[in-house]
Design a protein around this nucleic acid. Structure first.
Lengths: 129, 129
DNA sequence: GGATATACCTTATCTGTCAAGGTATATCCT
DNA sequence: AGGATATACCTTGACAGATAAGGTATATCC
């Protein structure tokens, strides 16, 4: 789900010998990350992904298949809508727009992230009683 | 992956209309959570799960199928070993023990969790430039 | 005209989760 | 003695999300 520069794809193939858990660690946050970008205004897939890459110092970015799967999922759920951009220079662009339902879901997911973060902090760190 | 008291299972069936994202949010941390418990010493499945439930105020716990799938995965990866406990009162117990590789993986996963947490904080919150 | 960057999309496959079943033992209550 | 309950482990089948590997099309640069 998330681009890792070196050998990450191979690490998934063997299953039990994962060299990185980043992919599964971020699983489940794809939709919220995309919704966050759309909270800033309408945007198209390629640009959204580039922004995410920039914001993480070029370390992370969605695989295209993941990105477009997520767009379809979000649109089917009524959380975003889409439209073709006006013909301009370069390839055509499909723009996405967050709906009111999307904004509600985004807020709910943000609150959930706070809870989940606290929960994992408690479960993953090793401390004596 | 994680027990939610009311209707969480149903929320997964529809796919796009998830009532809760907790399950997918925690996906990928199962192994690390189990390894954390085993860092405290050898333990068996049922007890590990009860401890997790207690530590989260009874709100979360692994589904049994998830738990035993994870044990198998971890053992196949050489991160844990297992042995049958001595016959005592109650049902037989299979104890799990973390290996040196498991300890290394646990430490790596903990560091990754720190990184991932910071990354998601940056990607999920909505802030102006 | 070829390389490169942009921009979108589909299909098949893999993995983790988990609902729904199962088995077996020990204790408590009547 | 018999039933309920708690403990404890396990398997199978189905599903959703991620993504490798393919594809199409347009515009710019050399």
């Amino acid at each position: 789900m998330i681009t890792l520069p070196h050998g990450a794809a191979d690490s998934r193939r063997k299953g039990v010998f994962r060299l990185s858990i980043s992919a599964d660690t971020l699983r489940g946050h794809t939709d919220t990350i995309i919704l966050t970008q759309l909270m800033r205004g309408d945007n198209y897939g390629y640009e959204i992904n580039k922004t995410i890459q920039q914001r993480t110092g070029g370390k992370y970015g969605f695989k295209e298949a993941t990105l477009y799967t997520a767009f379809k999922r979000l649109e089917a759920a009524g959380l975003i809508t889409s439209y073709w951009g006006e013909d301009g220079p370069g390839a055509r662009r499909r723009y996405y727009s967050i709906t009111d339902d999307g904004r509600e879901t985004w807020e709910k997911n943000c609150r959930e992230w706070q809870d989940t973060r606290a929960l994992l902090d408690a479960l993953i760190s090793f401390e004596e009683e």
